[in-house]
Design a protein around this nucleic acid. Structure first.
Lengths: 212, 212
DNA sequence: GCGTAACCTTACGCACGAGTAGGTATGCTC
DNA sequence: GAGCATACCTACTCGTGCGTAAGGTTACGC
């Protein structure tokens, strides 16, 4: 009996995206564990076995979410920061793109990111992404340094980059929690903290602990 | 039949601490959800109902852990940074205490902190703690600013403080993942990033976005 | 030396949610 | 319009782990 099928049959690729959308939404609202596959399926307007058929287990589904959102973010940043610009310009554009992304996908990114930090199975996944970011930032600093004829130990550089990335993530959290805040303004603030400090370091100014 | 009671009966206060120790350990190793009350009880050398009798449900237990560790940390920091010192000295001592704490309680703090970020029921708890830290840092900056006859909008100050706290947490994570790293050296690195940038801001140097 | 209160146990109920078995409908190809 | 692949469903199984009921044992007051 075909009393108008309530909703159309859709090709796999489309349904997969719908499922991912729903998954991101539910995971971000509930957290990984509290989210149920049933709720995700319902939110996607589909039944549970379909989710398993297309995206696999809950963990695999979460990883798929991470990948999609992560790739989107990386592309947004990479597309903005051309490698032949001066360091401060690159940093500025990268930050602008980053905060723009977070502002646009508040739900998606910020909370997935927050989720992934805590859960062991995904921490590695996330660490890889962050490592790439740290590497980019460290490379930027190193490049700028060499241009000035200076050099810092690689480890120090990495730690500085790590701190900058951490500060940025922290402001991203702040941005995600303040829906009325302006992404670009946040990027400017970050520049003020990050670049002014980094610029000092690049010019050879350093701080030393007092003898006590 | 009293064939030597395997382990002594202990007063409540002692057992509670043992339980909290075990809970911190297990939560940090497994994560909140993956941790089971059975394992915590076993690790504490006690049976499960005792845990329920003394510390309540799993959530309440976790909150108790957060409180204990959080209080310890706050005390460590507060004890180090006397309010009548100059800003950079306070910042330095605060950071030293903070990283020292993280270094000493790697298990306890770092992972509890990482856990709490993700899980909704505790995010608020954590946010309160961080808010206190941000407030302290912001107050420090504000104090230093007034001493120089300057002023920045409160919101800007808060955001800067937020970024600094974020960078610090990020390095704390790094420290927790590098057991051979030296807490004090990490604190010095943080000082280099944070203070050099902040000092610039305090002296009225700011960065402005290029017109594009 | 006996009650009573606090400490501690074993052994279970029960809900929740991941994952699946097995079956139905729809469109596409020849 | 038969056959076949693909989209899709309802309705289950079953493990896991939180929280508890009911009862044993040790210390301590009187």
């Amino acid at each position: 009996m075909s009393t108008v099928p309530a909703f159309k049959r859709l090709p796999r690729a489309v349904r997969e995206q719908q499922m991912l959308d729903a998954a991101v939404k539910v995971f971000s609202r509930r957290g990984f564990h509290a989210a149920s596959m049933d709720e995700i399926a319902e939110d996607a307007g589909i039944s549970k076995p379909m989710v398993y058929a297309y995206l696999g287990t809950k963990e695999e589904l979460f990883v798929a979410c991470l990948h999609r959102e992560g790739t989107r973010m990386m592309q947004a940043i990479a597309g903005a920061a051309a490698p032949d610009l001066p360091a401060d310009e690159r940093l500025w554009r990268g930050l602008k793109a980053f905060f723009g992304f977070v502002g646009a996908y508040r739900d998606g990114w910020a909370v997935l990111y927050r989720q992934a930090r805590g859960e062991q199975p995904f921490a590695g996944e996330l660490a890889t992404m962050r490592a790439r970011l740290v590497e980019v930032v460290a490379g930027m600093l190193d490049h700028a340094l060499r241009a000035e004829g200076r050099e810092i130990a690689a480890l120090d550089l990495e730690v500085v980059a790590y701190a900058l990335v951490g500060a940025t993530e922290s402001l991203a959290d702040w941005l995600a929690d303040h829906p009325d805040a302006d992404p670009e303004k946040t990027a400017t603030r970050m520049m003020n903290v990050a670049w002014l400090g980094a610029a000092q370091l690049l010019h050879g100014v350093t701080w030393h602990p007092p003898a006590d």
